[in-house]
């Protein structure tokens, strides 16, 4: 009798949990140095960020947002980067095959804050908005680093021409 009720709660509890993680958001660990100094400033401690799925439900992102997306090079890997330019913008690239790139329809340009130590759009070009997985809202762990992640662009990385 006890076993039966336990099975029943698990059967219904697991889908509720998965649905919550899929639609609202979840907490994930940030690996790597590509977003220094905003995330993982020291080498010892890694940050945990809250990734909001709800914020990107209709693929609306702004310039400067920190987002997590599926890597275009490896579908098993998720990467965390900052949106630099949206569709229609012209961006001055850092080491991409063309110096100036106009972002095509339905795409955006993402870059890590740590220029030179990051694998981003300067390597693989504009990414499709459909690859966006979630938007990082705040750092939740360690407690000493509790803060919201603000949408701000590095001064020199603003697009040359903005479409909107």
């Amino acid at each position: 009798m006890f076993l039966k009720s336990l099975c029943k709660s698990v059967l219904f509890g697991v889908p509720i949990g998965i649905t919550f993680l899929d639609t609202v958001g979840y907490v994930a660990r940030v690996e790597g140095i590509s977003m220094q100094p905003v995330l993982n400033p020291g080498t010892k401690n890694t940050d945990y960020v809250f990734l909001s799925r709800w914020s990107v439900r209709d693929y609306q992102v702004k310039r400067g947002d920190v987002i997590s997306l599926v890597s275009p090079k490896d579908p098993n890997q998720k990467i965390i980067k900052r949106v630099v330019a949206l569709e229609g913008d012209v961006v001055n690239t850092l080491g991409y095959k063309n110096q100036y790139v106009k972002i095509p329809e339905g795409h955006c340009w993402v870059e890590g804050d740590h220029t030179g130590h990051t694998l981003d759009s300067n390597t693989f070009g504009p990414v499709s908005l459909g690859l966006i997985n979630a938007k990082a809202l705040c750092i939740v762990w360690p407690p000493s680093r509790w803060q919201n992640l603000e949408a701000k662009l590095p001064n020199n990385r603003s697009p040359i021409s903005k479409s909107i």
Binding site: D58, Y59, P75, N76, P104, E105, G106, H107, S128, L129, G130, I132
Partner: peptide, 19 residues
């Protein structure tokens, strides 16, 4: 599981319009 083969018909999000 990434077991897709050549010849499979798939549903994907459009690269130019994610909706």
């Amino acid at each position: 599981l990434q077991r897709l083969k050549r010849g499979d018909i798939i549903i994907a999000k459009s690269p130019v319009n994610p909706k």
